[in-house]
């Protein structure tokens, strides 16, 4: 199978709607197909990655730990839109620090998160072959 460039765009906050969880499940299942995968977090989508989510009291599964496993699935291009983060009073420190391990460099840990401006992300989006929107 030819490798294609996939981008998943995530624009919804977690828990209030089911989009965030659905996207995550599609990403994990899709990872079995060895494609070139990028994730973009835009608008309220940046809220999916906040640290310290605690969901016992709302009776929903806390799926935020799953994002930390994405590196194991070779999903290691995680784009965060800078403008969206700033508009929400957040910085990268408020988000999980996502990493992946490079098997070819003796499992060296590398950052997965790329903080980019809207115009930079627009360029990355334009390079994609398949875009899935959540």
């Amino acid at each position: 199978m030819a490798i294609k460039k996939f981008m998943y765009t995530n624009r919804k906050a977690p828990y209030g709607t089911v989009y965030a969880l659905e996207s995550l499940e599609v990403v994990l299942i899709g990872a079995a197909f060895d494609q070139d995968v990028s994730l973009a977090f835009i608008g309220d989508g940046v809220y999916q990655l906040t640290k310290g989510q605690t969901t016992e009291a709302i009776g929903q599964k806390n799926f935020s730990p799953v994002y930390a496993a994405l590196g194991d699935y070779d999903v290691n291009k995680i784009y965060i839109e800078k403008e969206s983060l700033e508009e929400r009073g957040l910085s990268l420190d408020d988000l999980q620090h996502l990493v992946w391990e490079d098997e070819d460099e003796d499992w060296a840990e590398k950052d997965s998160i790329r903080l980019v401006s809207r115009s930079e992300l627009a360029d990355v989006m334009t390079e994609q072959e398949i875009i899935l929107s959540f």
Binding site: F63, A69, E101
Partner: peptide
């Protein structure tokens, strides 16, 4: 316990190798 998912076989294989 850490990630709240059971890893796919490919992920398991890589992790066992490590």
């Amino acid at each position: 316990e850490e990630y709240q998912i059971a890893p796919a076989v490919r992920v398991l294989t890589k992790a066992v190798g490590k």
